[in-house]
Design a protein around this nucleic acid. Structure first.
Lengths: 213, 213
DNA sequence: TTTTTTTTGTAACTATTGTTACTGTGTTTA
DNA sequence: TAAACACAGTAACAATAGTTACAAAAAAAA
C-alpha cells in the first residue's frame, strides 16, 4: 500500500490547497487497476470520479455495430471531468474507459464533488480546466480523422501510444490497432509494412518496435 | 431594444434564480449579430462569455491549410463554455464562431463568471452541464466522421441545418457545404443530385429545398 | 509431436472519395 | 449589351481505403 496523502501531494499539490488534499485523502478510495481492466462501460451509471495518480486510461467511443474508436488518454494528474456532470444528472456514460497500463487512482464519491465545487476555488478550476483539456483533445481527434489520411493517423497513433506507455515496444496486434482506429486489419498491416520499409519501426509478432517516428 | 430581463427570464429562468438573472441583466451587454458575422476567430483572446437568447452560432475547426470543419451549433439557452476556461487561463481560442442566423446574446465579463461560480450553484451547474453538452456533441461529430460515409454525413448535415435555421430552404451553395464538411464541391454536387433523384430534396441556384429527409 | 489457432503478409479486387476538366446557365459588372 | 463571373452538372480518371481470399509462420493446445 502506498502513502496516499503523499501521492496526492505529488500529483495535485501544485493545484489543490492542503486542506483539500487532506479531504481527498480522507474520503477518496485508493484503487489499482491492471492493464486491460475496464473502468467504465457505455450505458453504465457512474457513482464516483477518478483522480489519476499514475498510469494511463484510454477513452473509447463505440458505434451501433460495436466498432470502436480511440478518443484520447487520461494520464496522471488528470480526471474524467464528464463523470462529474454524469453523476449530477444521473446520466449514462457515453464512453468506455480501459486501463492502457497499470494505473493507480483515487475514487471520489459524488457528494463531495458538489461540496468541493462550492468550497474550493482550486477544485472548481481543476474541473473546468479538465473539461477544457478534454475538449482540446477531442478537437485534435476530430482534426486527425477529418483532415489526415490513414498513414498519418497511424503514425500519430503509434507516437501517442509510445509516449503514454513510455515504452519503445508497442504490445498490440495489428487487429487491435485496427479496432482502435476503426479500420481493417489488412489496412494496418499494409501501412505498418510501409513504415518498416522506411526504417521507422520494426515489426515483431504481437508487438511493434518504434525506431524513429 | 428588447426587454433584456424578460428575455433572460424566458431563456434561463428555469435554471437560474431570480438574483442571478438580475445580476446578469445588470452587467451583461446585450448584442445582436447578423447571419454570417464572425463572433470569434482562431487564435484570438476572449474577454467575455456569450449567453444566447435566440438564433444559432456555428462552431468551426480549421486545419493548417485553412480547411474548415463544422463541429456543432450553439442555440438559445446555451453558452460557449470553453470561453470561460479560455478567459481564466488567458488562452487563445481554438475554434471559430460564426452566426448561422440572426442571433441575440448577452456578453458576460470575465470577472463575474468567477464570482458567480463561487456564489451560485445554478451557475456552476450550468457551466458544467454546458461543457458536458458540448462534449456529447463533439462525440456525435466524431461518430459522424469516423463511422459514417459521406452520403449519410450529408443527410445529417442538411437535417441539422434545417432544424437550426428552422427553414425548409437551406441557403448555401454546394461549395459552402463542401467547405463545412471538408470535402470537394464535386462530391457534394454528386450526392445532392442523388438525393434530389430520390425526391428527398429539390435543388435551386444558391439554395436547397428540403422535402423529406 | 501433431493439430489447431493466432498472427501476419500479400495479391486481387471493389467501393468510396477526391481531382481535373469542360459545359451550360444564370447573374453581375463594365 | 457584352464580358466576366459564380454556380451547378457531369464525365473520366486517380488515389485511398476497405474486402475477400489464401498462404506461411509462430504459438498454443491437444
Amino acid at each position: 500500500m502506498i502513502d496516499l496523502k503523499q501521492a496526492l501531494q505529488d500529483n495535485y499539490g501544485h493545484i489543490f490547497e492542503k486542506e483539500l488534499i487532506e479531504e481527498i485523502a480522507e474520503v477518496g478510495i485508493y484503487k489499482e487497476i491492471e492493464s486491460g481492466d475496464k473502468l467504465m462501460e457505455i450505458g453504465s451509471y457512474i457513482k464516483s470520479m477518478p483522480l489519476l495518480l499514475s498510469g494511463a486510461i484510454k477513452i473509447l467511443r463505440e458505434d451501433d455495430e460495436g466498432d470502436e474508436l480511440l478518443l484520447y488518454y487520461l494520464e496522471k494528474g488528470e480526471t474524467c471531468s464528464m463523470t462529474m456532470t454524469c453523476c449530477m444528472g444521473n446520466q449514462q456514460s457515453k464512453i468506455r474507459a480501459i486501463a492502457e497500463i497499470h494505473t493507480e487512482l483515487v475514487m471520489i464519491p459524488i457528494g463531495k464533488m458538489e461540496e468541493w465545487s462550492a468550497k474550493y476555488k482550486s477544485w472548481r478550476n481543476f474541473v473546468f480546466e479538465s473539461y477544457n483539456n478534454r475538449m482540446n483533445e477531442l478537437f485534435q481527434t476530430v482534426d486527425s480523422i477529418a483532415f489526415n489520411k490513414m498513414d498519418d493517423r497511424l503514425i500519430a497513433y503509434l507516437k501517442e501510444k509510445r509516449r503514454v506507455t513510455n515504452d519503445e515496444i508497442i504490445n498490440n496486434t495489428h487487429q487491435e490497432i485496427a479496432y482502435e482506429m476503426h479500420t481493417s486489419r489488412v489496412v494496418i498491416s499494409r501501412l505498418l509494412k510501409k513504415l518498416e520499409n522506411l526504417g521507422k519501426i520494426k515489426l515483431h509478432r504481437n508487438s511493434i518496435e518504434v525506431i524513429n517516428l
